[in-house]
Design a binder for these strands. Structure first.
Length: 657
RNA sequence: GCGCCUGUAGCUCAGCUGGAUAGAGCGCUGGUCUCCGGAACCAGAGGUCGGGCGUUCGAAUCGCCCCAGGCGCACCA
């Protein structure tokens, strides 16, 4: 609601400046520091002062006096050295805000452009850890933001089922464990198979480091998997699919779902790479190096040609001298497919059905389901990948540009974020021995390869147990199933909020103490504010069944509303209302900058304001019926906005906790 | 060596395209509660916004130079 008025004010000033002074300057808007200064402010007169060679305050006075009425704006005043502050019509603002808050987010319009968001994409060879959770939670929140903003979104999870990481675990089963494919198949049915592989993967890493000769075993395993033959390929398929199911289960605990699982093996089988390769050769994007350190490789030139003789140009190897394709090469082909630029498509089969009926599809190399949805053909692609891969993402975009797909390159967006590390203290609690040097650092990097990190399911279990203990204490009378459900919602609220409150380019130094906290700036704090608001309405219904809680609007006349908003506590109500009504602009900013943390921040601030309001006004004992209804209106508005904000973060709002 | 990112209160972090006395959580100190649930509320202490120069009417925010950290720069992914 706030952003609507914001635009009106901006437009009115812009038009006035253009008509009166024939000037076209951008009108910056901001929030005044104190409510006595109004709700909207612009420092534009400082800019005008330079152009018109007059004092800013004088210009501001002129504009304020002559600009005339603006809808929803009660008056414009001059303040400070030349600020123009707008004061809104409070009463009408409330009715509009209430109306808007009751409207549900619309389905995307028919012609809405399609957005693909790729996230999670965990190597299917071990359990998911805390770093993977940040990726999935950020990606999922962004998907929700896009959906809320009226975009058609498709969520993809890339499955690297033919890469070295899977190869390492295959090697572990074959060489270290001496298992057959059938034995692995049986083991893969165990629920904690991903945990088993987590440890095995770390053992294999050590095994390979002990003797560099053993790296040849890995190369041979990888080759067999890529070509799809032998016990290696069979095992890779069993392992990667089983672990993928573990990952889907883990993410489902958090309410994170996918539309398509894009498997690397299918990209290979369907020869996506060959098509991309031909195109890149034809258009000169990659060339074969005949000499130098890249002799025999197909390389893509990056940056400028070398200045001095004998200096190698900056380049990225796309095809190795032994003929195998690098990861980036495959990624280029995949990215082209996402935009529908490859001229090839996968087959599709249903892979898994969630409890609510939603189906995740998987790519397939052969037979597909004829009535599968359409995948790919995106207008815009967001790849949620940590910032360490920025270089490779740039290579992919550069390849698209080189191929002449300027538009696709411009809409290939690296949704980048920093890693989750562990505080040295946390690493110690987990029983890892740190070097003296590491112990002094602010954080230490997790490493799946070394089996060093916090597993996602362990963390979720811990959070649920902690939440459960609190719930048991508060609601011993409730049924076991109810308590478990509430504890789950709180645990997820705490975890998702914790991962989303930091802006993307902040390294999260993970610590159990902070992550397990339910107080202060946390998800449960916001959930609790909602519970309080709902309790008021529940209690109201119990105490006074005749109270027309469903028709509050009819109890508070426009005049009463205006009086209450300008009366003794008017500013206080007004600030709460204003904040609640700014959900839309906050979400807009979050979506535009791909920063879900803005929504988290907003939710917390609103919850904080509401808790303060709750503390100061005892609504149910309010004797003045009109005022009571008005306070209930405010409460209902805040509750709806908080629920909406949390929903965008993927957090549920319990009725009690 | 080259590139990208970061440096704001004791700790962890916000601070949008430069704007009015720099904010929050945690921790610390003190207070609130015959209450719609204290997973709460209020108050206080605590900051040369890493340093310097510059641009500007105005700089935590923009530019340059230092200092200190992190991450990239594989015929790994």
């Amino acid at each position: 609601m706030y952003h609507v008025v914001e635009e009106r004010f901006r437009e009115a000033i812009r038009r006035f400046l253009s008509e009166r002074y024939q000037l076209d300057v951008p009108v910056a808007l901001e929030r005044p520091p104190r409510i006595e200064l109004g709700e909207l402010a612009t420092p534009v007169c400082f800019e005008l002062a330079r152009r018109l060679r007059r004092a800013p305050r004088q210009i501001a006075q002129e504009i304020a006096a002559e600009i005339g009425p603006i809808e929803a704006v009660a008056r414009v005043e001059v303040a400070g050295g030349g600020y123009m502050n707008a004061f809104l019509d409070r009463g009408p603002f409330l009715s509009l805000a209430l109306d808007l808050s009751r409207r549900l987010a619309a389905e995307p319009p028919a012609g809405a452009s399609k957005v693909i968001v790729e996230h999670t994409s965990i190597n299917p060879n071990k359990a998911a850890h805390i770093g993977h959770l940040r990726n999935a939670v950020l990606g999922d929140a962004f998907v929700r933001l896009e959906h809320f903003s009226g975009r058609r979104v498709q969520v993809q999870n890339y499955i690297d089922n033919t890469g070295v990481q899977v190869a390492d675990v295959v090697l572990g089963f074959l060489r270290l464990e001496k298992k057959s494919a059938d034995e692995v198949r049986r083991m893969a049915e165990e629920p904690r198979f991903d945990y088993y592989c987590w440890d095995l993967y770390a053992r294999v890493t050590q095994f390979l480091e002990e003797d560099k000769q053993r790296l040849e075993m890995r190369a041979a395993t990888l080759k067999a998997i890529e070509e799809g033959h032998g016990a290696e390929a069979e095992m890779a398929e069993i392992i990667s699919t089983a672990i993928l199911r573990c990952h889907l289960r883990t993410m489902d605990r958090l309410g994170i779902r996918y539309d398509l699982l894009a498997r690397e093996s299918d990209i290979l089988r369907l020869k996506f790479w060959e098509a991309a390769f031909r195109l890149m050769v034809d258009r000169g994007v990659i060339t074969r190096a005949e000499s130098g350190k890249y002799a025999g490789c197909w390389i893509m030139a990056l940056g400028e040609a070398p200045v001095e003789e004998g200096e190698e140009a900056e380049a990225k190897v796309i095809v190795r001298s032994n003929g195998t394709v690098t990861y980036v090469g495959k990624d280029i082909a995949y990215q082209m497919w996402k935009f529908g630029l490859l001229g090839l498509d996968f087959h599709y089969q249903p892979f898994f059905r969630y409890a609510d009926g939603h189906t995740v599809w998987t790519t397939a190399a052969e037979r597909g389901e004829p009535d599968a949805p359409e995948f790919g053909h995106a207008r815009e692609v967001y790849n949620v990948i940590d910032s360490r891969q920025a270089y490779l993402q740039n290579v992919v975009a550069a390849a698209l540009r080189g191929l002449g797909f300027e538009d696709a390159a411009a809409h290939s967006i690296h949704f980048s974020y920093e890693m989750v590390a562990l505080t040295p203290r946390c690493a110690g609690e987990l029983g890892y021995e740190l070097s003296e040097e590491d112990a002094k650092r602010p954080y230490v990097e997790v490493s799946g390869r070394r089996g060093f990190g916090v597993k996602a399911d362990d963390l979720l279990d811990k959070l649920e147990a902690a939440a459960r203990a609190e719930v048991d204490q508060r609601h011993p009378e409730d049924h076991e199933v109810t308590r478990a459900q509430i504890a789950r919602e709180i645990a997820i609220g705490a975890l998702r909020y914790f991962l989303l409150k930091y802006t993307r380019n902040t390294v999260i130094a993970f610590d159990f103490h902070d992550a397990l906290s339910f107080e202060g700036e946390t998800g449960p704090y916001v959930q609790y504010a909602i519970v309080r608001a709902r309790n008021i309405f529940r209690k109201l219904a119990e105490q006074d069944a005749g109270f027309p809680a469903g028709r509050l609007d009819s109890l508070v006349s426009a005049e009463a509303r205006a009086n209450l908003l300008s009366g003794a506590d008017g500013d206080e109500y007004w600030q709460l209302l204003l904040l609640a009504a700014s959900l839309g602009s906050q979400v807009g900013a979050a979506a535009a900058s791909q920063e879900p943390a803005f929504v988290a921040k907003f939710a917390f601030q609103l919850a904080q304001s509401f808790n303060n309001f709750y503390h100061r006004h005892h609504i149910l004992s309010e004797a003045d019926l009109v005022k009571k209804a008005f306070l209930l209106q405010l409460t209902a508005l805040v509750e709806r906005q908080l629920v909406a904000a949390l929903a965008l973060l993927g957090i549920d709002s319990p009725d009690k906790m």
